[in-house]
């Protein structure tokens, strides 16, 4: 009797969470797994076409172009943000004046809306009467307006904006890892005559290994997944230069949303297949990285 009562209590308390997760979290994934085998435009008839959507993905140049863009974007974001975050963490792990204030400032971008900041960055980088160009021209640093969101520089611009938003987060994660390294290791190495750079190379880096492996993995996944700020700033343009794969998926489902420059028609079935391939790509890279970086975690 008591047991039945306990079970009833347990299930009734978990029920709201369970229902919401199944209906709004799991079901949509199952929905996509079904429609990836269908020709379905979001209205009218749905037709089962087997693996046709996947052969279409293989030949979809625009998609593979977006995959390449994603790698450039994610690579650029990682190469800039991880070292910067690590250096900041090491510096702000010292007992220096104002370190809490500096940490709070550098972490601040992570609490602000990506979409809102994308609008702000758009007004800053806009080539026509953007704040940055006006400023640079006023002080004669550039002769004519630079098209920061144009064909040549748009990828660099969206990477810089992404780095701005991400460094604080990774800095904080590195700081958490650094605080697990015992102080006396540094003290004894200093007695042995090691300087700061040597300590960094031979103590900090190896002892941070397992944590660093986790942080970089997190950073890779985040970088591959991010598209909100790109969507608001450039909408994947110009001419698909900043079109990343998750943005490409988005446009197959919501073609008219955004700047209104619709180039596609709605493709629910095909979009589901592309989304699946995208998820597989992210998963494969994560697994490859995990095995490739095993050496990093072998310190302890």
């Amino acid at each position: 009797m008591n047991k039945a009562k306990n079970l009833a209590f347990s299930y009734s308390y978990i029920l709201p969470s369970f229902i919401l997760t199944v209906v709004l979290g799991i079901y949509p994934i199952a929905w996509a797994m079904r429609y990836m085998f269908y020709d379905y435009k979001g209205y009218g008839a749905e037709k089962f076409i087997g693996l046709d959507n996947f052969t279409r993905v293989l030949k979809d140049h625009e998609f593979w172009n977006s995959v390449v863009n994603t790698f450039v974007y994610a690579g650029g974001k990682l190469v800039l943000s991880i070292p910067l975050a690590l250096i900041l963490a090491v510096l702000l792990n010292q007992r220096i004046r104002g370190r809490n204030l500096l940490r709070a400032i550098i972490f601040m971008p992570t609490i602000i809306s990506t979409a809102v900041m994308a609008v702000v960055f758009f007004t800053i980088f806009n080539s026509y009467n953007g704040i940055l160009n006006q400023f640079l021209m006023k002080y004669k640093l550039i002769g004519s307006a630079v098209d920061w969101l144009g064909v040549d520089y748009s990828m660099l611009t969206v990477i810089l904006v992404a780095v701005w938003g991400a460094v604080g987060n990774y800095m904080l994660l590195f700081l958490a890892g650094l605080q697990n390294i015992p102080e006396d290791v540094y003290e004894s190495s200093a007695l042995d005559g090691a300087n700061k750079l040597q300590q960094f190379r031979y103590i900090t880096i190896p002892m941070l290994g397992p944590v660093m492996q986790m942080i970089i993995m997190l950073a890779i996944i985040n970088a591959l997944k991010g598209y909100e700020s790109i969507m608001v700033m450039t909408d994947g343009g110009p001419v698909g230069k900043t079109n990343v794969m998750f943005l490409y998926v988005y446009k197959l489902f919501f073609p008219t949303a955004g700047s209104g420059a619709a180039t596609q028609i709605q493709e629910m079935g095909y979009g589901s297949a592309v989304a699946f391939v995208t998820a597989v790509i992210v998963g494969l890279i994560t697994i490859l990285y995990f095995y490739g970086s095993k050496r990093m975690s072998q310190y302890e």
Binding site: I29, Y227, Y250, F254, A279
Partner: peptide, 13 residues
């Protein structure tokens, strides 16, 4: 649900 991400697809269903 925390780790699997398939992007904007879920918004439609």
């Amino acid at each position: 649900t925390m780790f699997v991400a398939i992007g904007a697809v879920v918004l439609r269903p």
